[in-house]
Simulated scan of single mutants.
Amino acid sequence: MPRMIYDYTKSILERVSFAPDLFGKELKKAVRNLLPHELDHLRNWLMYFTKEKPELKKCLVVIEKN
């Protein structure tokens, strides 16, 4: 079940990536809901995902705090 939540979180973040504010809001929800090892996976995925999206880089502060 937790893997499904992680995959769902990724799909939501992909869908809202057009709006940095909304992306940051959803990222904060993800930090609250995911397990520590899932956050590590999400952090790695975000580094790859935001490589070509500089407008989303500022949102990574949310996940780096944890």
Results as ranks from 00 to 15, higher is better:
51 K>H: 13
13 L>N: 04
62 V>Q: 02
11 S>L: 09
3 R>N: 06
18 F>S: 09
39 L>V: 10
44 N>M: 10
46 L>H: 08
3 R>M: 05
39 L>A: 03
43 R>M: 07
23 F>M: 11
24 G>W: 01
12 I>Q: 01
12 I>E: 02
59 C>W: 11
5 I>N: 07
64 E>H: 15
41 H>E: 15
7 D>G: 03
36 P>G: 00
20 P>H: 12
65 K>A: 13
21 D>H: 14
29 K>M: 03
66 N>P: 03
34 L>C: 07
60 L>N: 04
24 G>N: 04
58 K>E: 08
38 E>G: 04
18 F>M: 08
56 L>T: 10
36 P>E: 06
1 M>P: 09
5 I>V: 13
6 Y>N: 05
13 L>V: 05
12 I>Y: 01
13 L>T: 05
14 E>F: 07
25 K>H: 14
42 L>C: 08
18 F>D: 08
4 M>Y: 07
51 K>I: 04
30 A>I: 03
59 C>A: 13
5 I>R: 13
40 D>L: 10
39 L>M: 13
43 R>Q: 05
50 T>K: 03
11 S>T: 12
15 R>Q: 11
13 L>I: 05
19 A>M: 04
8 Y>H: 15
36 P>L: 01
63 I>Y: 02
18 F>N: 08
62 V>F: 09
30 A>F: 00
51 K>W: 05
38 E>L: 05
16 V>P: 00
27 L>G: 01
14 E>Q: 15
28 K>P: 08
25 K>Y: 14
29 K>D: 12
24 G>P: 00
37 H>R: 04
45 W>D: 00
19 A>P: 00
63 I>V: 11
58 K>T: 15
60 L>W: 13
14 E>I: 12
60 L>M: 08
36 P>K: 00
53 K>A: 02
26 E>I: 00
26 E>D: 06
23 F>Q: 05
41 H>V: 10
44 N>S: 12
31 V>W: 00
36 P>N: 00
66 N>C: 10
49 F>H: 15
66 N>Y: 12
15 R>T: 01
55 E>M: 12
23 F>D: 14
28 K>S: 14
61 V>E: 15
33 N>H: 12
14 E>K: 15
49 F>S: 07
20 P>E: 08
9 T>S: 11
20 P>A: 06
33 N>C: 12
66 N>D: 12
14 E>G: 08
57 K>Y: 07
40 D>Q: 13
62 V>E: 15
62 V>G: 05
41 H>A: 04
39 L>W: 04
58 K>V: 14
4 M>W: 04
64 E>G: 05
42 L>I: 06
52 E>Y: 03
42 L>F: 10
41 H>C: 05
35 L>S: 01
27 L>H: 06
43 R>F: 01
3 R>A: 07
38 E>N: 09
25 K>S: 09
65 K>N: 13
14 E>V: 14
